[in-house]
């Protein structure tokens, strides 16, 4: 869950800088927060083309509130099942974090049932954390389920991916960290998401990972991200797109890498912020093997497999978008 989609703070458009990803050709990216269930195959294709080799899809609010436990079960199953397969068709390794999001924690009856099924999912292969959890309205119910899920993460030895609120952000972020420490979590196992200029210092000072969401209008812009990198460097910092059902950009990570490169940020810092820090943080789950997405990517879609014309890894053939002909 990423944004409240209030467009009131929409800034006037800066002069348009043409997108040119040529400058980051050959770089690999890891987007540690993107809601692919809400995106199309065109997005997957564009991400793969731009160098995204792996991603994490946190469990979130689908926009339409769920009214029963089966909707949650099927959603979690789809994160470890159908969506994982869809992603593999484009050669992108798909991981997820599993949790009860803060908004729906306010439906207490349902939240209780969700807590009962979470242990069925957090130990699954490719589940790299408990997330995204934390505060939205900062109600008592949100706090209750946030605390319960911190305990679950501790028990399962998994990192935590924290969603910080839009409203009253700074205090909400502080409170999220206070509670995590109160429950005995190592800050190095906690990724605090959706940071901005006002929250980042304390997050880093206290030893947590600081994630930034590059999301138009309501969150970080990537020019601001470049400035933040100049100020804070690249240690324990990562960026993500949090692309979802709202006006968002699944190429936010590669585009920001390109802008960083244009503005003189070092390759090593770019690599840490757009790739390796996220892996280091979430690999503490024991569920990420970098060999699964580095090395030669199997993208030759016409290649024969075991003497047959089966597309390897279930990859789908590419359509030619520049042609008016559909065959």
């Amino acid at each position: 869950m990423c944004c409240s989609h209030s467009f009131e703070d929409k800034r006037p458009l800066a002069p348009i800088e043409k997108m040119d990803l040529e400058i980051i050709k050959g770089m690999k990216f890891f987007d540690p927060h993107v809601h692919m269930s809400s995106r199309t195959t065109d997005d997957y294709q564009a991400m793969a083309d731009a160098g995204v080799v792996a991603l994490i899809e946190p469990a979130f609010w689908l926009g339409q509130p769920r009214t029963g436990i089966d909707s949650f079960r099927d959603y979690y199953s789809s994160l470890v099942g159908w969506e994982r397969f869809r992603s593999s068709q484009f050669g992108i390794k798909h991981y997820c974090t599993i949790g009860l999001n803060s908004r729906e924690a306010n439906n207490e009856g349902l939240a209780e049932e969700v807590m009962e099924i979470l242990p069925l999912f957090v130990y699954k292969e490719g589940v790299v954390g408990v997330g995204e959890i934390g505060f939205d309205d900062q109600t008592a119910a949100e706090e209750k389920y946030y605390r319960l899920q911190l305990e679950l993460a501790k028990e399962a030895g998994l990192p935590v991916q924290i969603h910080t609120p839009h409203r009253d952000k700074k205090r909400g972020t502080q409170r999220s960290m206070d509670i995590a420490i109160e429950h005995g979590l190592d800050p190095y196992m906690v990724i605090v998401d959706h940071n901005n200029e006002e929250t980042v210092k304390e997050v880093l000072d206290r030893g947590f990972w600081a994630a930034f969401t590059i999301y138009p209008f309501t969150k970080m812009g990537n020019e601001r991200m470049v400035e933040l990198t100049r100020q804070y460097g690249s240690e324990r910092i990562m960026i993500n797109s949090a692309a979802d059902w709202g006006i968002s950009d699944p190429l936010a990570v590669p585009k920001t890498a390109a802008l960083m490169k244009l503005r003189g940020i070092s390759d090593e810092d770019i690599r840490k912020i757009t790739y390796s820090n996220a892996i280091t943080a979430f690999a503490q789950s024991g569920q990420i093997d970098e060999n699964d997405f580095i090395g030669p990517q199997q993208i030759d879609q016409t290649e024969r497999f075991e003497g047959n014309t089966v597309l390897r890894g279930g990859q789908v053939p590419r359509t030619d978008k520049s042609s008016i002909i559909i065959s």
Binding site: R73, Y76, S77, V80, G81, R84, F85, I117, L120, F121, K124, E125, G126
Partner: peptide, 9 residues
């Protein structure tokens, strides 16, 4: 079967 991920299926 009901909560299985891909390798489990």
């Amino acid at each position: 079967f009901l909560t299985a991920e891909v390798s489990e299926l």
